[in-house]
């Protein structure tokens, strides 16, 4: 198992900075998600690790070996492309065997050995018996699996996946997520995948690296990034929060002259951004730190979701209540707000 060390990596595209000094340690055998909005540089970073993009500055080490100067062919990084990039004129078996058949004669396994490996990999990705088909005859999910088998065939040192589930529909995504997690546990490859879907990142990855404008904002376990976002960007990007512009004064948080609740210790007085998730807002029978008007109620299997307006000028926030709690639309309810994710405004 090979770890990856990214040090001070920068990448310019025609004058625009796509990566701006990235430092990132990917531990041997871990499954790491590169999460960020589009244009954050996550795909560029993945391609840089693979050797598909020459760096403007910085170094990349694979397990202690400096890979910065290595050509893409010599890095032995398995890469799964967003749209799979299967060779359309080759059969599935030929696709998977490609990395083995292009080796120089001395390093190339014997023909029957290659065939056996292809069969094994098709079993691993749960697609036995489709070796003779062409990529055009497969569904999106099947292509994704073939692309992974092809990348694994060359026994890569690390496995890199670019938006692995981006082009698939919701149900297939869910199945493939579980399946990828499974494959990762079985093969143990150091795996990095790019996604813009925070739910996917926290559900699948051991650790999540959050990128924004070519920089790493935070690296941590799903628990860490969800519960202790390092800054306002991370708080806004993960956990589906509603952002409120607030002011902090004397330990109290106010928005638009409405008192919301107590500020956590250590937040200086002045303008700040508050990120509220459904779990931060509790509907209480009486008392509470503030109140709001219920504007919409939606039902899910085990609970009710309320859309609540604290005032006419503030964006609506969401709270979850149990099914036995009776609430009507238009009703004013008392609320307790936990202002855990409060960040002083930077500008």
């Amino acid at each position: 198992m090979t770890g990856i060390a990214v040090r001070g990596v920068a990448k310019d595209f025609a004058g625009t900075r796509a990566l701006d000094g990235i430092d990132l340690d990917i531990r041997p055998g871990e499954l790491l998600a590169l999460l960020g909005p589009s244009g954050s540089g996550k795909t560029t970073l993945l391609r840089s690790i693979a050797g598909l993009e020459p760096l403007t500055a910085g170094t990349i080490h694979f397990g202690g070996e400096d890979a910065t100067g290595l050509r893409v062919q010599d890095r032995k990084a398995g890469f799964v492309f967003q749209h799979y990039a299967l060779f359309r004129h080759m059969t599935v078996a030929e696709n998977i065997a490609y990395g083995l058949t292009v080796r120089p004669r001395a390093e190339r396994p014997a023909r029957h050995e290659i065939l056996r490996r292809v069969e094994d990999l098709l079993d691993l990705v749960q697609l036995p018996g489709i070796g003779k088909r062409f990529p055009g005859q497969l569904s999106g999910g099947q292509r994704q699996r073939v692309a992974l088998a092809r990348a694994l065939a060359v026994e890569p040192r690390v496995l890199l996946l670019d938006e692995p589930f981006g082009a698939l529909d919701a149900q297939v995504r869910k199945d493939l997520r579980r399946w990828l997690r499974d494959i990762h546990q079985r093969t143990g490859h150091t795996t990095v995948f790019v996604t813009h879907d925070q739910e996917e990142a926290v559900e699948l990855a051991d650790r999540v690296a959050i990128l924004n404008r070519g920089r790493v904002e935070q690296v941590g376990s799903p628990d860490e990034v969800l519960d202790h976002p390092a800054n306002a960007f991370v708080a806004g990007f993960v956990g589906q929060a509603v952002r409120l512009d607030v002011t902090v004064a004397e330990g109290r948080v106010r928005a638009d002259a409405i008192e919301l609740g107590a500020a956590p210790a250590g937040i200086p007085d002045g303008a700040a951004s508050l990120f509220l998730r459904t779990g931060d807002i509790a509907v209480v029978r009486s008392g509470g730190t503030t109140s709001g008007v219920v504007t919409a109620i939606t039902r899910s299997a085990a609970s009710r979701r309320l859309e609540i307006r604290l005032s006419d000028d503030l964006p609506a926030v969401e709270a979850e209540v149990s099914l036995d709690q009776q609430v009507a639309r238009g009703e004013r309810v008392a609320l307790t707000i936990r202002a855990d994710r409060l960040f002083p405004a930077t500008r």
Partner: peptide
């Protein structure tokens, strides 16, 4: 260029990628 890139990550030289892909 994705297929050519895929070929190169699998170890094929530029010429090999051109001829085979």
């Amino acid at each position: 260029t994705a297929e050519e890139e895929a070929a190169m990550t699998l170890g094929a030289s530029g010429l090999r990628a051109f001829l085979t892909v």
